[in-house]
């Protein structure tokens, strides 16, 4: 069963075309990394798939139903969205933030909140205020807020980009592992992490899909070099392949 079908999406902002007749579909389970250079349309695509922005043309269907016809409550129960930047305006406590996520996701029970706190190792921090947390703790709170309601689909706009490498590993791995029994589509900036943890990689360039293949196949594809405008040296290690980029022209 397919979870999401995006059919011929077009998004324009003034003169600029952000998504250009883009079609993609995702199964009910699996981990998908969205990669591409800056301005490729990754964040826009994610927002359209999550129903936060309406496309100028084309349509998205989720679990066989048109996204545009779903009520806000249904949409939130089905799709979890992790934004790139999150900074609450009020200095709420961790438990309150997670509880808000649970309420919006239609699982307002105290048990769900406590489970999420435990799962993301936030039990000891439950009473702490957001501003007193470290960046890694903030990222875990955001994960708990969005995943406490256990949505069938997770769309994440790499929330780990600003974290140090250990926390980035933790977060990206947690997002990818959700693909085992759910659908997890993640914008990933660190290509090594994308190829190492995700089953499928979609390369966006100029609002179009340039390549879409299992991670292992795409790794050696020359289109990857073309997409980013660099030459990749593929260095094999026992843990996987490392991509080292250099400029194509001297």
């Amino acid at each position: 069963m397919t979870a999401i079908v995006a059919n011929r999406l077009v998004v324009k902002r003034g003169e600029a075309t952000l998504l250009d007749d883009l079609s993609l579909s995702f199964g009910a389970t699996g981990s998908v990394a969205l990669i591409g250079p800056n301005g490729a349309g990754k964040s826009t695509l994610l927002k359209v798939l999550a129903g936060l922005e309406a496309p100028n043309a084309g349509a998205v269907s989720v679990q066989g139903r048109a996204l545009a016809s779903m009520s806000a409550a249904e949409r939130v129960r089905t799709i979890g969205f992790l934004p790139q930047h999150f900074e609450p305006h009020w200095d709420l406590a961790v438990r309150d933030l997670v509880r808000l996520g649970a309420e919006r996701g239609g699982r307002p029970s105290g048990d769900a909140v406590e489970q999420a706190l435990t799962r993301y190792e936030l039990g000891a921090l439950a009473g702490r205020r957001w501003s007193t947390l470290s960046g890694g703790e903030n990222a875990r709170v955001l994960l708990a807020m969005v995943l406490v309601a256990d949505p069938a689909v997770l769309l994440a706009d790499e929330p780990a980009a600003a974290l140090d490498i250990r926390h980035r590993l933790d977060v990206v791995q947690a997002l990818a592992e959700r693909g085992r029994d759910r659908l997890s589509v993640v914008v990933v900036h660190d290509l090594d992490l994308a190829f190492r943890f995700f089953e499928r990689v979609v390369v966006l360039v100029g609002g179009k899909v340039m390549a879409d293949a299992p991670a292992a196949e795409l790794l050696d594809d020359p289109r990857l070099d073309e997409a980013f405008g660099v030459r990749f040296e593929r260095i094999r290690t026992p843990d996987g392949t490392i991509l080292q980029a250099s400029r194509t022209t001297a």
């Binding site: 999550a50 936060l52 806000a72 409550a73 949409r75 939130v76 979890g80 969205f81 934004p83 930047h85 999150f86 900074e87 609450p88 305006h89 009020w90 709420l92 309150d96 933030l97 808000l100 996520g101 309420e103 919006r104 996701g105 969005v146």
Partner: peptide
């Protein structure tokens, strides 16, 4: 009250949590 709390999460997050 509860929608003011959601709005306080920022507009993107509020929309992701289904608030118009």
């Amino acid at each position: 009250a509860s929608r003011l709390d959601v709005l306080g999460l920022g507009e993107t997050m509020a929309r992701a949590f289904g608030l118009d």
